[in-house]
Design a binder for these strands. Sequence first.
DNA 1: TAGTGGTCTAGACCACATG
DNA 2: ATGTGGTCTAGACCACTAG
Lengths: 236, 236
Amino acid sequence: MELDFNNPIPLHAQLKNILEDQILQGYYKDKIPSERELMDMYSVSRSTVREAVSILVREGILEKRHGKGTFVSLKPVQEWLKMISFTETTKNMGIKLLNHGPVITPENIADANGFEDESYHIKRLRLQDDIPIAIELHYYPIELGQKIAEYDLSTTVLYDALEGDLNINFCEAEQIITCGYPTMEDAEHLAVSDTMCLLITERMIFDSDGNMVEYYKGLFRSDMYSFAMKMSRKNN
Amino acid sequence: MELDFNNPIPLHAQLKNILEDQILQGYYKDKIPSERELMDMYSVSRSTVREAVSILVREGILEKRHGKGTFVSLKPVQEWLKMISFTETTKNMGIKLLNHGPVITPENIADANGFEDESYHIKRLRLQDDIPIAIELHYYPIELGQKIAEYDLSTTVLYDALEGDLNINFCEAEQIITCGYPTMEDAEHLAVSDTMCLLITERMIFDSDGNMVEYYKGLFRSDMYSFAMKMSRKNN
DNA sequence: TAGTGGTCTAGACCACATG
DNA sequence: ATGTGGTCTAGACCACTAG
């Protein structure tokens, strides 16, 4: 990939996109080239490189370490996402039910996917070795949600319930990774500070007829796996 | 205020602090000087000015408008804070109770202020002309909270209850303004987008013996008052 | 000592907004 | 035409990290 100097898109934005793609595709797994190396690779000034990199840092994808380099901080999260994905290997994995019940469907969900005015909402805390690592928000069509509610939600794995007993086949799942920040309530549940970064995952699940049967959002602690790294960094 | 070129604190950080102070003290009420003017005023390069300003933009205190200038976006919030402060002039003001009950005191609150393990939590939605503008989180000592719970919380103004019938005198109130971002749940309640900025207000209230009787956090929509400004900007 | 990110400068041209 | 923020360059020195 090269920069297009005639493209009206700013060079730092182009470079940011290139780096982001390369990171997401696993080309850079740990460390990205130094700022001066990127200057040469893409024939731009250091300011432009720094602008591109700082955007990715702000988004939580990269992490700078003074005197050492710039490092990918997404990897641990990708591993999580695998770990907590559909298959849900429940080893050391716990669930705590926080809330559930019918709610008025949030506008952004209803607009995007044609849910009814009401939907069934389930809010769960996800634990790993008894440590809270994520909050999950689930929205279901009201009838489906009510069926799901008959299960013991605090212990049952939702997808198993969906797939097995409720006779639903998953057709499609979209996954979007963005970056956000916790508010007080999430901070409480996850025991994170006000400014700590959370990763937000969105997922829509459809049945074989193409109807959305679940809208999912997960908020994940971005520090859980990078904590050890930060500790070792401090100890050096 | 001038920059100290011998101070190890980076110039952009010094300038950022100066600008922030001046904004909070009302010296700049609408527009701050242009980047080139700030260059001359503080004898620094444009990069340094831009770095300082961009921090304040990231924190939601300033707002840039291409071709026009850099503007203060905190003013409306300060007006809110007055509007919704202790006196609580309830004109056009509504309250909706979202949650209340005993909870395990969040660690950061317990640590800082010596609350008991359990505290009484009240979560309210604040409305202005039926439009949700803020979420409030209140924590009380468990006994006090239980008394408060006997009131009709969805309509009663909390501070009136505290001061009048429960025989408590306020001694001190600290107010911290920081900036954060909403998660899904807050976005739902306040009907804001994922990336919209919320302002977080913290307040601790003590009785005449110096015991904390309330820990308060409010999440405010930062767009409510700047909306009109943005609209007029688009219409130009 | 060499390499890294952090800070800072001086200058340039562009795109947007306004009179 | 002028002023604003947006982008970009080339170069410099500093502070931190490591072999």
